[in-house]
Design a protein around this nucleic acid. Structure first.
Lengths: 138, 138
DNA sequence: TTACAATCTGTAACAATTACTGTCAAGTTA
DNA sequence: TAACTTGACAGTAATTGTTACAGATTGTAA
């Protein structure tokens, strides 16, 4: 039983961290560190890039965000840690969520001596708007 | 270089390019540009990093190698362009091939307006040797 | 208050990659 | 053949995303 009050988080909350968490919450854009920095800068003009990186690292270690490697140019962050996949549009560069069943036989891999932490399915192609635009161009 | 060689490939063959292609052929290590540079430097001590990057870019565009994003620290290159997946060991850092059926319903995505170029399945975990080593440590 | 630890900002350092420049060799044309 | 053109080369500078570090600041507890 907690002596005083329930700790809402298991880390020290600060205005900067709160702002980053709020920004990420329900964010479907898969923002990069730069995106986060720019957004938070509006409210906290003095925030440092280091704080953004430190906070993202911390949230990743706490399992509160996922670090995506789908974009080779920069890391992207996803507040949705439930299993789903991603598509990066090779035209507009956007990263979209793809919810689709993908039965991966992890048991088979475990049997072969691997241990599995995480599976990331990255699809490269064109999003519907870009595909449509491409069609009318021809 | 003899003209025959020029016909064999649809690009100009040079000793440097040949060496890189030979190095990659049947290479299962998923080497980075630095790995390629170091290996080729033994035979061609004056080779430039730019040549390595240019050649890898060219081979990628010709569909002769795949550029992998599984390792966020550096790009890696795979001469095996047939469909297969990869596992990056979080302990030793090696990237291993995983051949496993993973039925992705691309038709469903196409129906939803996407166009699919490539699907990359990246697994993060431990390779059998590292998993075994970890066990005996405890 | 004082002490301490954690977080902050600002900036330097770093590493991977890309861009640029001048040189050279091979191929092409007159 | 000679003059021109092309493309690959080495060498290096520039760029970019990320990490590391130093000192200032904040919050908490004794």
């Amino acid at each position: 039983m907690p002596r005083r009050k329930l700790r809402k988080y298991d880390f020290k909350m600060t205005p900067q961290r709160l702002a980053i968490i709020e920004y990420l919450k329900n964010n479907k854009e898969h923002p990069s560190a730069l995106d986060v920095f720019r957004a938070i800068s509006k409210k906290f003009p003095t925030i440092s890039f280091a704080t953004v990186y430190n906070t993202l690292e911390m949230l990743k270690n706490k399992g509160m965000v996922l670090e995506l490697n789908i974009d080779p140019e920069r890391k992207r962050y996803d507040p949705d840690v439930s299993p789903h996949h991603h598509l990066k549009c090779t035209k507009c560069g956007k990263v979209l969520d793809i919810s689709m069943d993908l039965p991966v036989d992890t048991a088979q891999l475990e049997k072969r001596g691997f241990s599995i932490d995480r599976i990331q399915v990255d699809i490269y192609g064109k999003c519907p708007p870009c595909k449509a635009k491409q069609k009318e161009e021809r």
